[in-house]
Design a protein around this nucleic acid. Structure first.
Length: 483
RNA sequence: GCCCCGUUCGUCUAGCGGCCUAGGACAGUGGGUUUUCAGCCCAUUAAUCGCCGGUUCGAAUCCGGCACGGGGUACCA
């Protein structure tokens, strides 16, 4: 059996790795690995007008962060280098010319202005917008020669006229392909436009690039988003015209915004980097993405990529496009966070906050906040008071209540049981609810009414710092002070 | 407009002709544990399986039509 080789082909036109690409990458990676195959990254940088500097680097960084390693790519090369389309231009020209030679493509000298005009007219006549084939028969009269050798187009080229190479889509017949997820899909050829294959700047369009490179890099499975379904017949035609083996196709459903439109940055955080900055763990993000349009056969909600590789089957992927719902991701992230060993999670937090907080402190604090956290970032809002006295208080502290607890604490040995005992005693004597005393302590120390257990927090802060905080009460509203 | 893909709780999904008066997870709600929040445990709300017809003894599951949603229709990917 042929080696399974899959790939993702991101274009460096965005800030970072799009979460939809991360999803596609995950599935491609899993399919490759479960078949002992290779996973490849190819950069499709053929649109120079949308090129974003640094995008490629950030895409690769995010993939590395996610833990989806590639066997071949622009940064580590491989047997089919280069892996950047802008560095493979000679291939595309060669193959486009070959198609012209075979009379399956032709030179087109129509200018963008002419094409725009044409489309406007078609629209006015309520016709579908498509290339009218103007240059298709551009030949000397009665010429039997293919366009390649015909003098008419040749002369224009020699005169320096700009041109593109277009695919000559047959006027009749039906192009059919089998999608592993959706089954057979057919398109009538007469409805397929004469696609541009090679642009006037010498760069290929996606359609030429993807076919030439997938074949050239021996890609066995083309697994991509469903937005490519309607382009696939063009690709099939190309494979046939070249006489190449057609890869296995699988079109994944598109991830959607809550309003069901295609996932977009306007309506949702889409960059993988955003999830990293918010303190999501790559394992959780991947686990969540895996649950999109696919479910673990055992019904497991939490599983690793390795676990997924063992049981995943492309055929089980759903055709329905799922909505990307961050709530479930948050839950999952919390589960992952809690499953970590103390030292591992502490180190993650240490690095997440750029070594801002001492590792030993984090290790002490983590047990107090582990049940409360859903993202790494939340550590700061939950436990920030350990490192810095609160600047803002949820409400003024009641000095009278505080005084009781203050005294109680001063008298106690500085440990949890002793402190709790003293506070309860103080409460009983004064007829105040212990609950209220604890709350007042909490606000004085943390500035907030919710958070980690207060007595444990006091222990970690230490006697000196704690008492200092209890003495220096932020200026409350004058009338609320009752001593 | 035309072409293509889709349609099960709010969301992710299970379901492959009888085991479905449709199961699980997230979110929600109620309760328990608790000095708060969270976590944990228990309970619970929520889908006439888009609609209409057909096939069948029997349909969420098969077929057809319709409606709705999405994608494509570029010298963008």
């Amino acid at each position: 059996m042929k080696t399974v080789r899959t790939r993702i082909a991101p274009s460096p036109t965005g800030e970072n790795l799009h979460i939809g690409n991360a999803y596609t990458a995950l599935i491609n990676f899993v399919v490759a690995k479960q078949n002992n195959g290779q996973f490849i990254i190819r950069i499709e940088d053929t649109d120079r007008t949308r090129f974003v500097l640094g995008s490629e680097r950030r895409i690769l960084e995010s993939l590395a962060w996610l833990g989806i390693p590639h066997d071949e790519g622009p940064d580590n090369d491989g047997p089919f280098a280069p892996y950047r389309q802008s560095e493979r231009l000679e291939f595309y020209r060669k193959y486009a010319e070959e198609l012209v030679e075979k009379d399956h493509a032709y030179y087109c000298f129509c200018t963008p202005d002419q094409l725009g005009e044409m489309r406007k007219e078609q629209e006015a006549r309520h016709e579908p917008p498509r290339y009218d084939g103007h240059c298709r028969e551009l030949k000397t009269q009665n010429s039997k020669l293919p366009a390649k050798r015909d003098p008419a187009p040749r002369d224009k080229i020699q005169n320096g006229e700009k041109y593109v190479i277009r695919l000559k889509v047959p006027d009749e017949g039906v192009t059919t392909f089998t999608d592993l997820i959706r089954g057979e899909i057919s398109f009538e050829n007469k409805l397929i436009d004469d696609q541009v294959l090679l642009k006037s700047d010498g760069f290929p369009t996606y359609h030429l690039g993807v076919v030439v490179d997938d074949h050239g890099m021996e890609i066995s499975h083309v697994i991509r988003g469903e937005e490519w379904i309607s382009s696939t017949p063009k690709h099939i035609l190309l494979y046939r015209f070249f006489g190449w083996d057609i890869p296995v196709y699988a079109h994944l459903p598109l991830l959607r915004n809550p309003d069901k439109s295609k996932l977009s940055k306007r309506k949702n955080p889409v960059w993988a980097s955003w999830y990293k900055e918010q303190g999501y763990l790559p394992e959780a993000l991947l686990n969540y993405l895996a649950s999109m349009a696919w479910a673990h056969p055992k019904g497991d909600e939490l599983f690793s990529i390795d676990g997924m590789i063992k049981v995943f089957d492309l055929k089980d992927v759903q055709t329905t496009a799922p909505i990307f719902d961050i709530e479930k991701l948050r839950w999952m992230n919390g589960e992952y966070l809690r499953s970590y060993q103390l030292s591992a999670i502490s180190y993650q937090l240490y690095n997440f906050f750029n070594q801002k907080y001492p590792l030993e402190m984090i290790e002490q604090i983590w047990p107090l906040v582990r049940e409360r956290m859903k993202t790494l970032k939340e550590f700061e809002s939950l436990a920030g008071f350990f490192f810095e006295r609160p600047k803002e208080y949820e409400r003024p502290v009641d000095k009278k209540l505080l005084t009781f607890s203050h005294h109680a604490l001063e008298l106690s040995d500085w440990n949890h049981d002793a402190m709790e005992k003293r506070i309860r005693e103080a409460a009983e004597k004064s007829g105040i609810k212990a609950k209220d005393l604890f709350m007042e302590l909490r606000i004085a120390i943390t500035g907030k009414s919710v958070g980690p257990p207060i007595l444990e927090s006091l222990e970690i802060l230490g006697r000196e710092e704690s008492l200092k905080r209890l003495s220096v009460i932020p200026a409350p509203e004058p009338e609320s002070i009752t001593i």
